[in-house]
């Protein structure tokens, strides 16, 4: 049954995600079989399930296909310069501590050009939820080799196969100090939604990697078929092992994809450490940033 076939439905029944999406901008730009839309859907579902006040949530993206996500979510959204989603989010969170600040962007954006910001935000334990959509390539600019392209995979800049060792992202995040680290694929819609919901309840630098298909570039250049074939590969090769050592999570070309929540710990955030430290050193002269933001220093 299509909604068009039942005009009464089209008028009375809305897609359940309507309150969370800028439906006037749908259909979105992503290609058929691209995994980014599914991740957006899971992110929106997690917001719904968490019952969080949407006026107190913001989403920050960088540049790239995955960087378009902020523009489709009905939240305060910021589409920042390439690689700079985390620095922007850092300022936003420190200036408005009451907000739940999330970052939703691509692998090239967050750990290629933005890699330095990524490791330092994890090291400082900034209170950010970072969801990284990993399609193993730079999709928007034509399938170039990126920091996550598996060894021997072809890309438009490595037509004879990639010889650079890619990042193992959960390992990178965990060894930089992130207290929450998880990986899923875009097939794991329920676990991904639940994991985002869980991460929304935690504090500090929370990192969720989502492996997702890019059919028109990564898959086409590697003759790996379409999006649905990729989802079957995730079905066959994803192995869920919660609590696994992130050091074991490297992804080989067409190899196993280790998924799960690898790290779930508590560690004081940057802001808590700052408040404690200056409180000790400066006593009453230290005025922490008010929750709703504002001027520092009482005047």
């Amino acid at each position: 049954m299509t909604v068009e076939a039942r005009p009464d439905y089209a008028e009375t029944v809305e897609h359940p995600m309507t309150p969370f999406l800028r439906m006037d901008r749908i259909p979105h730009v992503w290609c058929p079989g691209c995994g980014i839309g599914t991740v957006v859907r899971c992110f929106a579902s997690a917001l719904e399930k968490s019952g969080i006040d949407l006026d107190k949530v913001s989403v920050v993206s960088g540049i790239g296909c995955a960087g378009r996500t902020a523009g489709y979510l009905k939240l305060d959204g910021f589409h920042t310069a390439h690689g700079r989603a985390i620095p922007f989010a850092t300022g936003l969170k420190l200036g408005r501590p009451e907000l739940t600040v999330t970052v939703l962007s691509g692998d090239g954006d967050l750990v290629g050009i933005g890699g330095n910001h990524f490791i330092h935000a994890a090291r400082r334990n900034l209170d950010l939820l970072v969801v990284l959509i990993n399609n193993f390539t730079y999709g928007m600019t034509g399938g170039q080799n990126g920091p996550t392209t598996p060894l021997s995979a072809r890309s438009s800049t490595m037509p004879f196969g990639n010889f650079e060792t890619p990042f193992n992202l959960p390992h990178l995040a965990a060894s930089s100090g992130a207290p929450y680290v998880a990986r899923w694929t875009s097939l794991h819609v329920r676990r991904l939604t639940w994991s985002i919901e869980e991460a929304l309840e935690r504090k500090g630098f929370r990192f969720i990697e989502v492996v997702a298909p890019c059919p028109v570039l990564y898959l086409r250049l590697n003759k790996l078929g379409d999006g649905v074939q990729r989802m079957r590969y995730y079905h066959d090769e994803a192995e869920i092992r919660n609590g696994a050592d992130p050091g074991d999570a490297a992804i080989d070309f067409q190899g196993k994809i280790l998924c799960g929540v690898f790290v779930d710990e508590e560690r004081p955030t940057y802001q808590e450490l700052m408040d404690e430290h200056y409180g000790n050193v400066l006593g009453d002269d230290y005025v922490p940033m008010p929750l709703e933001g504002g001027m520092l220093g009482g005047g």
């Binding site: 897609h15 749908i26 259909p27 980014i36 839309g37 599914t38 859907r41």
Partner: peptide
């Protein structure tokens, strides 16, 4: 179907 559809 609803959750996996990238197009809403």
């Amino acid at each position: 179907c609803e959750t996996i559809c990238p197009e809403f």
